[in-house]
């Protein structure tokens, strides 16, 4: 189709997205406007990633794209084409919880749990870059994630505990 035909066309053509999520390859034809979080939750059924504010504020939808934390409500699925994505479902290995998941459980790092998938993914990214963060560095590291019920102190304790566990 020529460019002028594309411009004239009311019909939006689908785009092909190939992603690897938690080690598994997926390929889908999607609308260009489909957001990454919707690809993950609605097309692929991985509902561990949550949608909170939907406007790049709360961080509940945080996933890692090629190792970098991103708010998946503010990235198009097509922008993640050919990328490696890690979601909260990918943290557990061989039925063993990730040290961060264990630490959140043991340190009361969650109450309602809504923000937890995003908190965990931001913490994974933080510890990958800084394996021994100070409490202040943890606060800065998870400053893009809002929690409305647990309070941040136990979350910070959890990240510290996980950092220690991962270093040992």
């Amino acid at each position: 189709m020529s460019m002028s035909e594309v411009i004239a066309s009311k019909e939006i053509s689908g785009v092909s997205v190939q992603v690897t999520i938690n080690g598994q390859a997926y390929q889908r034809e999607v609308e260009p406007r489909l957001l990454l979080v919707q690809l993950i939750r609605e097309e692929l059924g991985l509902t561990g990633t949550h949608i909170g504010c939907d406007v790049t504020y709360c961080g509940a939808c945080t996933v890692l794209v090629d190792g970098n934390p991103v708010k998946s409500c503010t990235m198009l699925a097509i922008q993640a084409d050919q990328c490696e994505i890690l979601t909260v479902e990918g943290l557990e290995q061989d039925s063993e919880l990730h040290p961060l998941q264990k630490a959140f459980s043991e340190n009361h790092g969650l109450q309602c749990g809504f923000c937890t998938p995003g908190m965990l993914m931001s913490s994974v990214a933080l510890l990958a870059e800084n394996p021994d963060p100070s409490p202040d560095e943890i606060r800065k590291g998870i400053s893009g994630n809002l929690c409305r019920c647990t309070g941040y102190n136990n979350i910070i304790k959890s990240v510290q505990a996980a950092a220690k566990e991962m270093a040992d």
Partner: peptide, 23 residues
């Protein structure tokens, strides 16, 4: 929350981006 529908074009070079945007 979806954006309004749009056509998506991936530019592989600066020149391609500029000619797409011009057109």
């Amino acid at each position: 929350m979806y954006p309004a529908p749009f056509h998506y074009h991936r530019a592989d070079s600066l020149q391609e981006a500029i000619s797409l945007l011009s057109e």
